[in-house]
């Protein structure tokens, strides 16, 4: 059963420059919520952004990972200190 940390690491390993924050929404190891920030999202529609993340997990979505709720954004929206 994947942990939020597993999910985070796999997203960050697969999408260049991505930063992911992942929580297990039910504590059951199969419902997750992820906020992913990545330069690769720039110029892409929301659908394309979410597909990039879903593609990391392939058939596990709907299988071992029952739900992966996503919020995607580009680094531009992060205020710089």
């Amino acid at each position: 059963m994947p942990s939020p940390e597993d999910i985070k690491q796999r997203i960050e390993a697969s999408i260049t420059g991505a930063h992911a924050e992942v929580e297990d929404t039910t504590g059951g190891g199969d419902h997750f919520r992820a906020t992913v920030t990545a330069p690769a999202f720039e110029g892409r529609s929301r659908i394309e952004q979410h597909r990039l993340v879903y593609d990391v997990f392939g058939a596990e979505i709907g299988g071992a990972i029952h739900a992966l709720s996503l919020k995607t954004q580009t680094p531009l929206k992060t205020p710089t200190p």
């Binding site: 929301r46 659908i47 979410h50 597909r51 879903y54 058939a59 709907g62 992966l68 709720s69 919020k71």
Partner: peptide, 25 residues
């Protein structure tokens, strides 16, 4: 749709998205 999760909302023949995108929009 090339979209792995349910629900999926379509409008005018196009995929709008799943629950997250629909909620955001």
């Amino acid at each position: 749709s090339n979209w792995p999760t349910i629900p999926q909302l379509f409008a005018n023949g196009e995929l709008i998205g799943g629950c997250d995108i629909v909620s955001e929009m």
